[in-house]
Design a binder for these strands. Structure first.
Lengths: 249, 249
DNA sequence: CGTTCGTCTTGACCCAGATCAAGGCGTGCC
DNA sequence: GGCACGCCTTGATCTGGGTCAAGACGAACG
């Protein structure tokens, strides 16, 4: 994992005698706070976190084949992961929003199996994985959380694998973004698409032109309002209905 | 996880004074043996394994929504996992051969997120997950192996998600089966397709007719020889070349 | 302020693979 | 044996979304 030299600092601990605080992203993604650790343990947990960034648009966080040393939670911004095939064509694997964790698929190989790039200005909470695994042997709550995170991603990866129409994929994509933003306290109905149409298309296994056409049609049908990268979900009801097969509900 | 009452027994321990043995499937999938445990630890590891089966063709091992209690390694036979959408259409998620582990995606939810059914006569090594997680806190090697297994599956799930042609998908499917059989000591070039054409098609997001046609064409081109469910890979070279984008190599 | 470049849209056409239809072929059961 | 039912194959046709081509629109920059 590449770290911009301009900002690399340990997670600042607010140690005011009685309490230690994690930033909300660390807390959210590692769920450390839920498990009732004592102060010594909290201090240990703190040292494995490092706040890094900002990565600016287009800057890589890690590249395929690099040695795996850390997973990271997104604090702000959007990260795209992708691979390139033998003909140099890009395949987008996922978009990671604030609170979401990148790098998990690297554990099994010891190397990152894909590239991760910032789509806008990105701040990360970086967790040294060897340290984390070592701590996990003494903190069952942390181990359980790691198992959960890993297992979750297996399920997520299976979603877009299905045999769905362009409309279903697009609806699922929008509903998913909406929910994920909402989970972190952002608006569920208005947000910015931080990725290009080409990225969306590639992720959904469509052509960029199809993305454009589907969005246009969704707007004509009163499902959404879209202007360049700003989008508003108007009829969440019907969008969710369209997405239900993809999202499995 | 449903266990056929006719056969449910603890992993028989060959405790001949000095050594404990795992069945090769347990050893292979849990990698317990690699980690230099002492005898007391090995005994603990043994009790979390249970050999169950046979499940006969069509019999379910677990169903979507059931409470998660165990992961399992396939000892013999083939397991298919699938989900059903709102219109009752099946979506095949994967096929699991001897040595492979089912149930990992259930960890995050505490419930199985899909159905698992035996495609032929299936024997399993069943690992109680709560017990395993508890042991893992004391056995770093076991924890690491669990992390590896989980992380591996994230990568696997991403494979068939890509934007590939029917030929590429089919070639990748055959090469993947071949390698997975070879890894467990079976022939890499001749094996039996234990699933129907419809299952293969569904898994590869094709129509059954397309599977039939592609296999036929592969045979005419001298890549394979296929007769009903028996298949022989003739030109592994060219098949692998066809599959290289899907398999990422 | 105009130029440029990347991004996005829109239309026309095309094709891989789906769907529909019609058997063939093994296997198990009466 | 012969009947029936899955499973598989093969051919004919159709279509969702890809591809190609041609701009439109904005943001960044001189």
């Amino acid at each position: 994992m590449t770290v911009p030299p301009r900002l690399r600092r340990p997670n600042p601990i607010a140690d005011d005698g009685d309490e230690l605080h994690f930033c909300s992203t660390c807390a959210f993604s590692s769920a450390c706070l839920d498990s009732g650790y004592d102060k010594a343990q909290l201090r240990e947990l703190h040292v494995l976190v490092e706040h890094v960034g900002p990565y600016k648009e287009g800057e890589h966080i890690f590249r395929e084949g690099e040695e795996f040393n850390a997973i990271a939670a997104v604090r702000s911004g959007t990260v795209k992961t992708y691979v390139t095939d033998t003909e140099g064509r890009e395949q987008v694997q996922g978009f990671f929003l604030p609170g979401e964790v990148i790098g998990l698929s690297a554990i099994s190989q010891g190397r990152y199996p894909c590239n991760a790039v910032a789509l806008d200005s990105v701040m990360l909470c970086r967790f040294s994985f060897p340290t984390m695994a070592a701590l996990a042997t003494r903190m069952p709550g942390l181990q359980a959380q790691l198992f959960r995170l890993l297992s979750q991603d297996i399920g997520k990866a299976a979603l877009l694998a299905g045999n769905y129409s362009a409309d279903e994929r697009m609806a699922a994509f929008l509903v998913s973004l909406s929910r994920r933003y909402a989970a972190r306290g952002f608006s569920a109905s208005r947000f910015r698409l931080t990725m290009t149409r080409a990225d969306i298309a590639n992720y959904l296994r469509l052509a960029a032109e199809s993305v454009s056409r589907v969005l246009r049609r969704f707007q004509n049908d009163g499902l959404i309002r879209v202007e360049r990268r700003d989008i508003e979900l108007i009829d969440r009801e019907r969008l969710t209905a369209l997405a239900r097969n993809v999202l499995r509900e």
